[in-house]
């Protein structure tokens, strides 16, 4: 299999492209020397500096709060949207509904950011709400960005599962709401979690939309990192990246192990995302 070997070589080179920059960054973060490529021993100097950087920690806490809130909102609305798309057939206005829902997936960030900022400014002019811009407007903006992604995840899961179980529940006398709460939601469990996590990550990662809709006083972690990057990389940012990488790897590794174990115990041979 000459071609199999060629493909595997491509895969190896691809992973090298993805990981070599990240691994060099991790190595740099433990280097006490300010000149990053002169490795002169092992030190946690930049981690101490990171820990002492109140501005960065405050921004990280704000980002986590916005991410948790907006992910919860996006999961609630996205579940309704995904349920409607998967179960309501050809309802009136479905085309427009789906188009508006997917608009966020195909519009560049600068467009989304500018258009939402203008909306908030106009709303403040005419309704007096939201007063000013900050954590609240960033959260609202992130809900409307992530909602589309959650809807895709939920719709795919429901389409996969089929509606037989809900139909059976209703045949047996459950009201539509009872069938939704007792059958559909438990069925959606893992998809709800992955939708929430996706929305959470999108929010944590967003710089452009947040910068547009934020006001003075509300700086998220990406905003602080970006303004530091414009002045040049500080070794502290390498330490921050390493911490995030470690947390994400542990979380993903743990989730993968759990899934492997659950997959073997419950439905052998069934890989489920």
């Amino acid at each position: 299999m000459k071609r199999g070997r060629f493909l595997n070589l491509c895969l190896l080179l691809g992973y090298a492209f993805l990981y070599v920059p990240v691994l060099l960054l991790v190595a740099t973060s433990f280097n006490p020397n300010r000149l990053t490529t002169v490795l002169s021993g092992f030190s946690l100097r930049w981690y101490a500096a990171l820990w002492a950087d109140d501005k960065l920690i405050e921004a990280a806490l704000l980002s986590l709060r916005i991410a948790a809130l907006s992910a919860t909102g996006a999961t609630a609305l996205g579940t309704l949207a995904g349920f409607a798309l998967a179960r309501f057939g050809r309802f009136r206005g479905r085309g427009a509904f789906a188009a508006l829902l997917s608009a966020r997936l195909v519009l560049p960030d600068v467009l989304v950011g500018l258009s939402l900022l203008l909306l908030f400014v106009q709303m403040e002019q005419t309704l007096g709400w939201p007063a000013g811009r900050g954590a609240l407007t960033i959260t609202l903006a992130h809900v409307s960005v992530s909602l589309s992604y959650v809807a895709v995840v939920i719709e795919a899961r429901l389409a996969d599962a089929g509606s037989e179980l809900e139909d059976a529940a209703m045949d047996l006398g459950a009201s539509p709401w009872a069938a939704f709460a007792l059958v559909t939601l438990p069925l959606l469990g893992p998809a709800l979690l992955s939708g929430w996590l996706l929305a959470f990550t999108l929010s944590l990662d967003d710089l452009v939309v947040a910068t547009f809709v934020s006001g003075p006083g509300a700086s998220t972690l990406p905003m602080v990192v970006f303004s530091a990057l414009r002045l040049g990389v500080t070794p502290e940012l390498n330490a921050l990246a390493t911490v995030i990488l470690a947390v994400v790897s542990l979380a993903l590794g743990g989730a993968w192990l759990l899934q492997q174990r659950a997959g073997r115990a419950v439905v052998p041979g069934r890989a489920e995302a």
Binding site: L24, L25, T28, D205, V225, L229, V233, A241, V248
Partner: peptide
């Protein structure tokens, strides 16, 4: 999943 800006940071270092 590690974040967009931090991946760019890695390339600046490179």
């Amino acid at each position: 999943w590690t974040g967009f800006l931090l991946r760019i940071t890695a390339w600046i270092g490179l």
